[in-house]
Design a protein around this nucleic acid. Structure first.
Lengths: 288, 288
DNA sequence: CAACACAAGAAAAATTATTACACGCAGGCT
DNA sequence: AGCCTGCGTGTAATAATTTTTCTTGTGTTG
């Protein structure tokens, strides 16, 4: 169930000769590729059918039918995004592109998540007396904010910080009973690694949302790893944020379910306060 | 495209006998249907292969292969969401549910967006001397933060505020050349409406990300409306956030494309600074 | 009760994909 | 240099899958 897209664009030039030609033809006209038989596709690429089968195998499919199936899947999600070189500029194109990439990021997140790890993280969070959430630099700071936003509602005592200097001081001052969650999309934040080391010295459990194998992931007790392909478009800061956000979402839900009663109490209280302070419409969201 | 689903659920009972049985089997296990051959599916339904072919034709496909293709497409986003809601508690279930809902929110956003409005909003933003971004209460505050995070990188002068009292003061003190973006998921925030009214008095253009027809939408010059069904699960603050986030994403991209050169300059500078301050790995994201 | 419409299966046919095998070519090794 | 080896390719044979054709059975209607 691998994603075809990276294999097709073949950034690292692993495909050769006819395979590259085939990939190009498929990318140029996905609908054709989906509808055609192996013979038709082979003819368009001026190769033999077996070459097409082999091509499908090389890019990770079981065969040509499987290839078409996967292509159909991918295509539905909005395959306009298979044209990286052609800069999309119209509003409709940009919208389609971003939505497709976001959905794709969520899809890949879902593939990568390990329920066991998530459960463990949720349990640790649930048991914490106090939670620290670290994340700096736009994207990860959004994540740590969001963790705060979600967990305080469940009755968790939590502080979120986006300030690397503060993070270090907070880490130096942690006390048992604390649990720390850090977020780093690259996993290369050296300060964050230092924080995690300090935590470990104090036996404070740490959860990291980050790339697998990265320094941050290695320094954390419970790494929740999310690996997504880098975007090449510098105007677009990757759709990784959607995946991270979903990870927080899932985590917060699991924490809520771990003690449903307690969570309900707090959520009700918050909701009542919101309804009171606004015009009494109780369809209100929990915090706009 | 998506009309396979209605045909399968067969609300108006147009299918009969074996066809209904086949539809049920397919809906029960879409993955099986996608993977299996016509023979296997026929066996599971205890019918003959030709019956399956005829079934596919009746519900609007060209044949069994086409049916599988369409099914694969549908299965990616649409169908999971349409399943009856069961209380989910296991980590895997929660993850699946949240991812599906988020993808669906993005899907619906995509359908609702009006490219013309987006373009107009982007142009107004691009022309602004100064941008104010308002949004309070967890979700919308994330959105206004994100607007800041995305637009300052493009060279926009922008301030984001999550403080209703400050919003009002800022609104009272706006000067021509300013453009304001507000976010409210419910659209019921009275203070925000007041802010928008103040802006209008000063002829400051206003853009609102909110529900259509809501007071906030009505008070804004350029309402970018996003209507998503309310979730009933109080533990889950709707997946609307993903949609709003994507809207910001799209908007920021359009602003960037409106003056690509300028945007590139700023993004490069930011990137260089990031690379310098870290370990020189230039695959770094733009702001973790 | 016959005539008809319809649905279903069996078997044959057609289509489509895969495998087996042989050839050719480039790069490395003796 | 000459030879082996590995890789990619096409042809032809094979296998698989799907569709068509033909036949039978069932239920409805005049």
């Amino acid at each position: 169930m691998m994603d075809l897209y990276p294999a097709l664009v073949d950034e690292d030039r692993r495909l050769s000769g006819h395979d590259r030609k085939l990939a190009q033809i498929v990318l140029d006209d996905v609908d054709f590729a989906i509808r055609s038989t192996i013979g038709e596709l082979a003819a368009r690429a001026e190769v033999s059918p077996p070459t097409v089968t082999r091509f499908c195998r090389r890019i990770g499919c079981a065969g040509f039918s499987d290839f078409k199936l996967q292509l159909a899947r991918m295509n539905y999600v909005g395959l306009r995004y298979l044209r990286p070189e052609v800069p999309t500029t119209s509003a409709a194109e940009v919208a389609e592109d971003i939505v497709a990439k976001a959905q794709n990021a969520l899809f890949q997140l879902h593939q990568q998540l390990d329920p066991v790890v998530l459960d463990r993280a949720a349990q640790v969070l649930r048991a914490a007396d106090f939670i620290l959430a670290f994340g700096s630099g736009g994207n990860s700071s959004m994540i740590s904010h969001e963790l705060h936003n979600r967990l305080f509602r469940l009755g968790c005592r939590i502080h979120s910080s986006n300030d690397r200097s503060m993070d270090l001081m907070l880490s130096a001052a942690v006390t048992p009973g604390t649990v720390t969650v850090v977020s780093s999309m690259t996993g290369l934040d050296a300060d964050l690694v230092r924080c995690l080391d300090l935590m470990r010295q104090q036996k404070v459990p740490t959860i990291a949302l980050t790339q697998s194998g990265s320094p941050v992931a290695l320094a954390a007790d419970i790494p929740i790893t999310i690996d997504l392909p880098e975007g090449r478009n510098i105007f677009r800061p990757t759709s990784t944020r959607y995946a991270f956000l979903a990870a927080v979402d899932i985590l917060a839900n699991l924490v809520a379910y771990a003690d449903r009663q307690r969570a309900t109490v707090f959520l009700r209280r918050i909701k009542e306060e919101l309804v009171r302070s606004r015009d009494g419409d109780d369809r209100q969201l929990l915090g706009d």
